[in-house]
Computed example of a mutant assay.
Amino acid sequence: MDLISSRLLFRPMEERDRRFMRRFLSDGELTRWLPVDYPCPMEQVHLHVDRRLEHWDKHGFGTFVLEEREGEGPVGYCGLEHVTETPFIDLRYGLVQSAQGRGLAFEAAMRVVTYGFHGLQLPRIFGAAMPDNKASVAVLTKVGMRPDKRFDCYGSNLFTASVDRVAFDLKAQPVTHTGIYGAHG
């Protein structure tokens, strides 16, 4: 299943994305805000990608690779995944530096959360960010997430939040450029 938004194409992560993820996950600047064990040594990148691919196979959803509609090649990732051994579905995202600061993380997060609630019928979606990562905390807040201490999968030093479908739908009503089935949906 591929998704679109006004500026982004979303496609399920595939084997061919190992090279992009290797560059992304081994870059100390791009991974400085990820909660655990980053940047990755090269051998760990393969395990990371294997877990993303296995999630798609097992659950039928997971992490998408993002490409700008008017660009070439991946600019990041965004998706929903089960946190291992928990009932939580976590919103995950990251962008290369050239794609940061243009609202793409929010656009991707809105599209993926909309898909989670309306396509997958999820009851609640969680998110976490390092408290000092103001941009990521802002994305979680803008998609309607509010602090939620139940989401403690990555340690107590994170900003943890969640949103349920009703609260999200109330928050998302004014957003028209990221409809359920694509841009201007």
Rank of each mutant, 00 (worst) to 15 (best):
Y93C: 00
A161K: 03
R16I: 13
C78D: 04
R102W: 08
G116T: 04
V36S: 13
G94K: 04
D90I: 02
F159E: 07
V83W: 01
E29N: 14
T178K: 02
G155N: 05
T86E: 02
A105R: 00
M130I: 04
N157D: 13
R19E: 15
S98A: 14
P41N: 14
T84F: 13
G119W: 10
K134M: 05
V166I: 11
V112A: 03
P147L: 07
P35A: 11
P174Q: 12
G28P: 15
I125V: 12
V96P: 07
E43F: 15
H177I: 10
V112Q: 02
G101P: 12
V113L: 03
C78I: 03
G119V: 06
S156L: 11
W33D: 09
R165W: 10
D37N: 15
E70L: 10
F88I: 02
E85Y: 13
R52A: 06
Q97K: 14
Q100F: 11
V139Q: 01
R16N: 13
Y38H: 15
R7F: 09
F20M: 09
A129F: 08
V36A: 11
L25S: 12
Y93V: 00
I4T: 12
T176E: 11
A128Q: 05
L104D: 03
F151Q: 01
D50Q: 13
R69I: 12
E72A: 11
D17W: 12
Y38A: 13
E85P: 06
E54M: 10
A99N: 04
P174T: 11
L95D: 03
V96A: 04
P87T: 04
P123F: 00
E70G: 08
G71R: 09
R22D: 14
G94P: 08
H48R: 14
M130N: 04
G101N: 12
G103S: 07
S6A: 09
P131R: 04
F151E: 00
F20T: 10
C78N: 05
Y154D: 03
R19N: 15
N133S: 03
L8W: 07
C78Y: 07
L34H: 12
R16P: 13
S5P: 08
K58Y: 09
Y93N: 01
H82M: 08
V75S: 03
F126H: 04
C78M: 05
F61V: 05
A108K: 06
P35D: 10
Y181W: 15
E107R: 01
V166T: 11
T160G: 06
A167M: 08
R22M: 14
Y115C: 01
L95N: 01
N133I: 01
V139W: 03
F126R: 00
Q121G: 10
E85T: 08
G155T: 02
H48T: 10
T141F: 11
A108V: 05
E14S: 15
S6W: 07
W56Q: 04
R146Q: 11
A172N: 12
F151M: 01
L80M: 07
M42R: 12
T63E: 09
F10I: 00
L80A: 00
S136Y: 02
I89C: 02
R150M: 00
G94I: 02
R111V: 06
P74G: 12
C78E: 06
G182I: 03
W56M: 06
K149G: 01
R7T: 06
I125D: 00
S26R: 15
